[in-house]
Design a protein around this nucleic acid. Structure first.
Lengths: 166, 166
DNA sequence: TTGTGATAGTTTCAAATGTAACCATCAACC
DNA sequence: GGTTGATGGTTACATTTGAAACTATCACAA
C-alpha cells in the first residue's frame, strides 16, 4: 500500500481537528474575544469550580506556560480569583469570579448547541460510530495513561520498523 | 447537560490529534530531523510526483507561507528540485530529487507501519467505527467543500443560539 | 501599449508557543 | 537550624506561525 496523505490517519485527524477548532472557537472569540487557551481555562474552572494551575493543565492537556498566561489574562479581566493555599504557599487555588461564571454560563450552552448541531449532521449510526471509534483511538493512543501522570512512557507499539534508523 | 471538557468533541479531537501527531512525527524527526510541514511536503510530492506550492498547500491543508518555508528548507537539503513553468513564469513545478525520493521511500513504510500498529490496538469493529465516524465527521465539518475551493463559506449549522450575542 | 486587477510565491512583522532558566516554597534528612 | 532536592508557578529567550505587505507575472480590456 502506498502512502496517501488524504487517507493517512494522523493527517485526517489534524485536518478535521483544525477545522472543528476554528468553527467552535469562533463562538467564544466573537462573543468575548477569548483565545483557545483562555476558553479552556474558563471551561475547566467552570466545570471544577476550583483548581490549581497544574490541575488545569492536566485536565485540559495544556502546557503549563500556556495555562499560566491564559490564567493571567483571565485574571486581568477579573474573571478569575486566586487564593494561595494556607498550608502550601506554592499552590494557588483558582476559581471563577461572578463575572467569570456569568461568561461561562453564557458560553457553555452555545458550545454544546454547536456540538449538537454538528453531530446532527451525522446519522445516529454514524454518531455512534464516531463515539466508539474515537474512544477506541484514545485508548490506543494511551490517553488514559497519559492523563494520570506524564511520567512513564507508553509501551511501544508493535512496529517491525521502529527505530530502524536505516 | 453541562459542559464537561473531557467529553466535549473538539477538545477530545484536539487531544487525540496532538498525541497522534507527536507519536507519528517522532519517526521522521528521529530519522531525518524533519518538521511536520516538511514531512507533509515530502509526502505530497512523494505521492503526486510534481506539484506547485499552491497545489501542495491545498492538498496538505497548509498555509502558503508554511509551504513556502518547508519547500525552501527541503530545497536546502537538495531533496526538492524546482522548475519554472515555461508558459506561466509565476508557477514553480516542484518535484523530489533522487535524494528526496530515497528519503520518502525510507519513511513511507515506517509511517504506514506505525499507523497499522496503532490501528491494530483496535478491534475490527472499532476500526470500522473509527473510519465510518471520522468520514462522517469530515463530511459534517464540510471538509469536502473546503477542499475544492476555500471561497464560499459553509452553510451555517442549525443552531438556535448562533449569533445571539446576548 | 498601457493600465487594472488577479494570482503564485516570498518576505516582513507581530503574536503565540515551548524550552529552559528562574523564584519561591516545601519536605526530608543531616 | 541548614542543606538538598523536588514542586508550583512565572519569566526570558528563541522558534514557529499567520496576516499582511510585497514582488513578479499574467490576463484582459480600454
Amino acid at each position: 500500500m502506498d502512502l496517501r496523505l488524504a487517507t493517512f490517519l494522523p493527517y485526517r485527524l489534524n485536518r478535521a481537528t483544525a477545522l472543528a477548532s476554528t468553527q467552535f472557537s469562533r463562538i467564544y472569540r466573537d462573543a468575548f474575544g477569548l483565545t483557545v487557551p483562555e476558553w479552556r481555562v474558563l471551561a475547566t474552572l467552570g466545570e471544577l469550580g476550583t483548581a490549581t494551575a497544574k490541575e488545569i493543565g492536566r485536565d485540559s492537556a495544556m502546557h503549563k506556560t500556556k495555562v499560566s498566561r491564559a490564567v493571567a489574562s483571565l485574571q486581568r479581566r477579573r474573571w478569575i480569583a486566586r487564593q494561595t493555599d494556607s498550608l502550601d504557599r506554592r499552590l494557588e487555588h483558582l476559581s471563577l469570579t461572578a463575572a467569570g461564571r456569568a461568561a461561562f454560563r453564557r458560553l457553555a450552552p452555545k458550545m454544546l448547541a454547536y456540538e449538537e448541531a454538528l453531530l446532527a449532521r451525522l446519522s445516529p449510526a454514524e454518531r455512534r460510530a464516531l463515539m466508539t471509534g474515537l474512544a477506541a483511538l484514545e485508548r490506543a493512543l494511551g490517553i488514559a495513561e497519559q492523563e494520570q501522570k506524564a511520567g512513564r512512557p507508553m509501551p511501544p507499539l508493535q512496529t517491525s520498523l521502529s527505530n530502524s534508523r536505516g
